[in-house]
Design a protein around this nucleic acid. Structure first.
Lengths: 193, 193
DNA sequence: TCATTTTTTGAACAATCATTACAAAAATAA
DNA sequence: TTATTTTTGTAATGATTGTTCAAAAAATGA
């Protein structure tokens, strides 16, 4: 193909941009920040991502959705999917302090985009609802199998996991201590017994 | 006293500024926004609040701290403080859709200020920790009295209420439906039985 | 070799930002 | 009245914002 070859891979640019968006949020991340983080100049970024800053952010969100799809596969192939969900939540406690401060980019976006950008708010909400649906299907199935004894509806339980996810991703900013987080996560996971 | 009398009361300016900060966050609120909302010009705002935009935001946070003090008093004077806490959480479900989108200004600030402003992050965190301490003292007392039968430590229970507070204030942005919120809040409040 | 195509760099752009400067307005004290 | 003090509204300021543009760079195809 004709034309000057591009130095940067789109995926790498997206991941580097995502890191900054994740930390500082959408509006507080400047194009100068993105340029520095990705190593690509403004013109280059706009040539690759025609929608500019906003499209770059959408791609960062899309990447999280793809990660969710991978998690869905893992759950589908697991013998004990409930344990996998529990492990996933508990693994938060082991992350480093920088990641605690970052929280969850999807959760962050839902907070940031209120009264600001309905489209981005909706995109983030969608990912969270997909996650809830995933939990719902696993919980309903495991309840039928008797692996979950709780009589609380799968709908309520799944939504409670989402609520807890939103909560713990702020709590970990306040209490970065591993044991504190483990205790708190463990307590909540009792609803899945 | 000499000098031109001021038209606007400081408290009213703070409350009007708080409303905008609460909705859009600190950085996305411009001084033009604040000028429009309060009805006071830039010069007037800077004359009253020498620290400018940041001081105005601090005052808005301080107002929430004062509200917490009022809640503390109400709990101290209550015969059934646990019921008061439960009522407080359940009352969220009855708020209107605009307030659901706003969430909690303290929780919003903790998310927004990560990697951005340690001072404001700390101020918001302090309010949340004060709230946790308040829950802790009530729960410990009521456990001793036998009004709470749960054997889970008061520390864990109080912190779980904070985690839930952080979670529900994002969940309500996604599910503004009153019954959904009531169900979810009711489920979580079972830990206080 | 040379025209064509694409990417890259970096400057230019207009808009917006928080803050400051300044003079008019409106009060009190003498 | 008049000097003093404080508040107010508005314009000026300089920095930063996201985006666009033009020209150079670097490849391919003929």
């Amino acid at each position: 193909m004709k034309g000057r070859p591009n130095i940067h891979q789109d995926n790498e640019i997206i991941l580097k941009a995502q890191e900054i968006f994740w930390q500082k949020g959408y509006y507080s991340t400047s194009l100068s920040d993105l340029s520095t983080a990705t190593g690509a100049g403004a013109g280059s970024l706009y040539n690759t991502f025609k929608g500019g800053k906003k499209q770059l952010f959408k791609e960062a969100l899309l990447q999280r959705r793809e990660q969710l799809a991978i998690f869905r596969e893992a759950l589908a192939n697991s013998e004990q999917p409930v344990n996998l969900i529990k492990k996933f939540f508990l693994s938060i406690a082991d992350e480093d302090i920088q990641d605690h401060q970052k929280g969850c980019i999807v959760a962050n976006t839902i907070v940031e985009m209120s009264f600001m950008d309905e489209e981005l708010q909706t995109e983030a909400t969608l990912i969270l609802k997909e996650t809830e649906q995933l939990y719902l299907s696993v919980i309903a199935k495991e309840q039928k199998k008797g692996n979950i004894k709780s009589k609380i509806s799968a709908e309520l339980l799944a939504r409670q996991l989402i609520t807890f996810w939103l909560g713990i991703n702020s709590l970990r900013r306040i209490y970065a201590d591993k044991q504190t987080l483990k205790d708190q996560i463990g307590l909540q996971l009792n609803i899945l017994d």
